[in-house]
Deep mutational scan, measured.
Amino acid sequence: SQVHIGNTTFTFDNPEKAQKYAEKYAKKKGLTVQKNGDVWTVE
């Protein structure tokens, strides 16, 4: 599972961890999370 934030990609061994990280980061920065398969993009 991966989380894309700008030009940075974070890889997680667990989809739940990836989703939590993406949502927490997005909330903190006032951004949105797009999910595509097991990839979350914060923008």
Rank of each mutant, 00 (worst) to 15 (best):
I5Y: 04
V33Y: 06
A22S: 02
T32Y: 04
V39L: 08
I5A: 03
A22P: 01
Y25S: 03
T41P: 00
G30V: 00
D38R: 05
K29Y: 15
K29Q: 07
E16S: 09
E16N: 08
Y21H: 04
K35H: 09
N7C: 12
E43T: 14
F12L: 04
K29D: 05
E16L: 11
Q19P: 02
T41V: 13
K28L: 11
V42D: 02
I5D: 02
V33L: 09
Q19Y: 11
K20P: 03
E23Y: 09
T9Y: 15
N7F: 12
S1N: 10
G37W: 03
T11R: 09
S1K: 07
F10S: 04
L31P: 03
N36L: 13
Q19V: 04
I5M: 04
D13H: 07
G30K: 04
K20M: 12
G30A: 03
V3K: 01
K17H: 13
E16W: 11
Q34V: 14
A22G: 01
K27E: 12
K27L: 07
K27F: 06
W40D: 01
T9H: 12
K35R: 14
Y21F: 15
P15Q: 08
F10G: 01
E23D: 06
D13K: 10
I5K: 03
K24L: 12
T9E: 04
K27D: 07
Q34F: 12
K35G: 05
S1Y: 15
K17N: 11
W40N: 02
T32N: 11
E43R: 08
Q34M: 13
K17M: 13
Y25T: 03
V33P: 04
Q34I: 14
V33K: 01
V39Y: 07
Q2H: 12
G37R: 03
N7V: 06
K35E: 01
F12S: 04
T8H: 15
N36D: 12
G6M: 08
A18V: 00
V3M: 03
T8F: 14
Y25G: 00
N7Q: 08
T32K: 11
I5E: 00
H4F: 09
F10Q: 05
Y21Q: 03
I5F: 06
D38M: 08
Q34P: 02
K17Q: 13
N7D: 11
I5S: 03
V3P: 02
T11K: 11
T41D: 06
K27P: 01
D38N: 14
T41E: 10
G6K: 09
W40L: 05
N7S: 12
K27H: 10
V42I: 12
K29S: 06
F12R: 01
A22Q: 00
L31W: 12
G30F: 03
T32V: 11
N7W: 11
T32S: 08
T9S: 08
T41M: 11
N36H: 11
N7P: 05
A18T: 00
K29H: 15
T32P: 03
T9V: 15
I5H: 03
A26S: 03
Q19F: 07
K20E: 14
V42N: 01
K24R: 13
S1C: 14
K24V: 09
F12K: 02
L31K: 02
K35P: 01
K24M: 12
P15C: 10
K27S: 09
E16Y: 11
P15W: 09
A18Y: 01
K24P: 00
A18E: 00
G30S: 02
E16A: 12
V33A: 10
A26N: 03
F10M: 10
V42K: 00
E43P: 06
T32M: 08
L31R: 00
A18K: 00
S1T: 11
Y21E: 03
Q2E: 12
Q19D: 04
G30C: 03
T32R: 09
E43D: 12
G6A: 07
G6N: 09
Y21M: 09
A26F: 04
T32H: 08
Y25F: 11
V3E: 02
T32E: 05
G6D: 06
Y21W: 15
N36K: 10
T32G: 04
F10R: 06
N14C: 14
K17T: 13
V3L: 05
K24S: 14
N7H: 12
Q19L: 10
F12C: 06
N36P: 01
K20C: 00
K17S: 14
K29N: 14
Y25L: 13
F10Y: 13
E43W: 10
T9Q: 07
Y25P: 01
F12I: 03
E43K: 13
K17V: 12
K27T: 06
K28I: 10
G6S: 07
T41N: 07
E23N: 05
K29G: 05
Y25A: 07
V39M: 12
V39A: 09
G30P: 02
P15L: 07
T41H: 10
G6Y: 11
G37L: 05
K24I: 11
V3C: 03
K24W: 15
K17C: 13
V39H: 13
Y21I: 05
G30T: 02
D13E: 11
F10A: 03
T9F: 15
F10L: 14
E23I: 07
F12H: 03
T11C: 10
T11P: 04
P15R: 04
N7M: 10
E16V: 11
W40P: 01
K17F: 09
T41F: 13
F10P: 02
S1G: 13
S1I: 14
S1V: 14
K20Y: 12
Q34E: 07
E23G: 00
G30N: 05
G37K: 05
E23R: 05
T8R: 15
K35M: 06
T41C: 14
A22Y: 04
H4Y: 08
V33W: 06
Q19G: 03
D38P: 06
W40Q: 00
Q2C: 14
T9N: 06
K20I: 12
E43S: 13
H4M: 13
G37F: 05
Q34T: 14
S1H: 14
P15D: 09
G6E: 08
K20A: 13
T11L: 14
Q19H: 09
T11S: 10
